[in-house]
Design a protein around this nucleic acid. Sequence first.
DNA 1: AGTAGTAGTGTATTAAATACACTAAGAAAG
DNA 2: CTTTCTTAGTGTATTTAATACACTACTACT
Lengths: 231, 231
Amino acid sequence: MATSELDKYSKPSVAVDIVVFTIMGNELKVLLIKRGQPPFAGQWSLPGGFIQIDEQLEGAALRELNEETGVRDVYLEQLYTFGNLNRDPRGRVISVSYFVLVDSTKIKPFVTGKENISEVQWVSIEKLPSLAFDHDKIVKYALRRLRYKLEYTAVGLELLPDNFTLTDLQRLYEIILSQKIDKRNFRKKILSMGILEKTKVFKKGAHRPAMLYKFKKAKPISTFRGFKFEG
Amino acid sequence: MATSELDKYSKPSVAVDIVVFTIMGNELKVLLIKRGQPPFAGQWSLPGGFIQIDEQLEGAALRELNEETGVRDVYLEQLYTFGNLNRDPRGRVISVSYFVLVDSTKIKPFVTGKENISEVQWVSIEKLPSLAFDHDKIVKYALRRLRYKLEYTAVGLELLPDNFTLTDLQRLYEIILSQKIDKRNFRKKILSMGILEKTKVFKKGAHRPAMLYKFKKAKPISTFRGFKFEG
DNA sequence: AGTAGTAGTGTATTAAATACACTAAGAAAG
DNA sequence: CTTTCTTAGTGTATTTAATACACTACTACT
C-alpha cells in the first residue's frame, strides 16, 4: 500500500466505543466491561478498542463488541466522533462511537476471555458508576440520541423480541423517556403508523391474554429519518 | 508523550472535510476547492485536510477551512465519520466531516496561496461536478442534515445577515427545502417560536419597506435539538 | 396621479394530540 | 362455581397545530 505520503505526519490512534442499550426488568441498561489493564485498570468502561488498519469502522465496532462481550447480530448506528486531546492518557486517541440496541432475551453477554476484561455487566442507566476515559460523556450523548429517535422512528422495536404486546412496547417507551404515557393514545398512534401486524397469537399469563404483535416486513426501521449511512 | 503502547499497531490517517453552505442569489451553494496536486489533481473537492497530532478535531476543521479558503468565524457542527477502506487512494484515511453555515454577505472565500489549490468557488448544489474521494456522499449527507435540521431548529438563521426581513428568511427556507411556503403560515409559525425580534429599522428599496428582524439573545440555536457536542 | 411590486395581515377548515373511564378476559383463591 | 384480582382492550370530546386562501398598505418610479 502506498502510504508514504501519509506517513510524513504522526498519526493519532483511532478507536471505536460502543454504547449497547437494552431493557431488562423495568430498567434501561448499558453494557459495561471492567478493564483488566491500564489505563483505568479495574474501572468500568464501554466496550471498544482500536481499529485495525484494514478494517471498516462498523466492522471494528462489531468485532470489538463480540470479542469483549460475545454480543453479535445487532442493530448498529454511528453516534459521534470524540477527539479531545487528553481523552486517553496513553496519547492521542480519536474515538468513533457507536450506538447498539439489543433484545435482552436474545443476547447474553459474557466474559469471553479473549481480552483482558474481568467483568461484563448490564448496568442501569440510573446507577452508572464513573466510567473510564470520556465514556460518561459518550453514554450521555447516546442516551440523548436514543430518546430523540424514539419519538419519531420505530427504533425502539430493536429492543423487543420478535413478538411483543402493545403493553410491552408502551412500557419500553415509558422506561426510556422516563414518563407515563396514556394507553389509548399510545395504541392509537403506534397502530396508525402502520408498522405493526397482529400475529393472531396470544401471550398467556396470570391475567387476560394479550395479543402479540410483530413488525411488518424486515424491520425497515433503522434508516428512516435517522442518521445511519455509508453502507 | 507516552505513546509507545499505541504504536504497536499501524494507524490510519485522520482527516477532516468540511461542507460549507451558503445562500447566494436564489441558490444553495457549497464551497469547493480545485485540487492542485494528486490524488485527484485538477478535480473539485471539499475543503479539508489531515489533523495535526496535537489539535482538536473542530480546530483542525476550522484551520483547514481558513488555510484553504480564508473563511473563518463560522457555525460548525460535526456530521459523520467516513471510514471506507478505499476512500483515499493513498491509503487508509478516516475522515471526520463537518457542516458549516455562513452568511455570504460576510464571508468571501479566496485562494489563499497557503495550500496547493488552484481555485476556490461557490457551486450551486444543483450543479455540482463529480467530486474527489467520497465527497459526493459527504455533500449528500450534509444536505440531508441541513434540510432535516431546518424543519425544527433555527439553524437556518446562520445563513443570514444579522438583520433580515421575514421575506429573506422565507426565501431561505424555500431554497433549501426546494418548495414553496405560504407567506402567512410561515410568518405565523416563525414568529410564534419567539426567537425573533423586530429591529424597528426598515429595509429600504424599490418597493414597500420591510421590517428588519434579528435574533433574540446570542444565537442560542446551535445546540437546541441538535447534535452538536463536545465543547 | 397612476402604476408596479413587495410587505403585511386574519379566518375558516382540517388534522393531530391530548384527556379521560369503563368493560373484557383469564387465573387464582375461597 | 362464585368472587376477586390483574391486565387487555376500546371511543369520544376537547384542545392545539397545520393548512388553505385574498386582499390592503406602502414606497419608488414614471
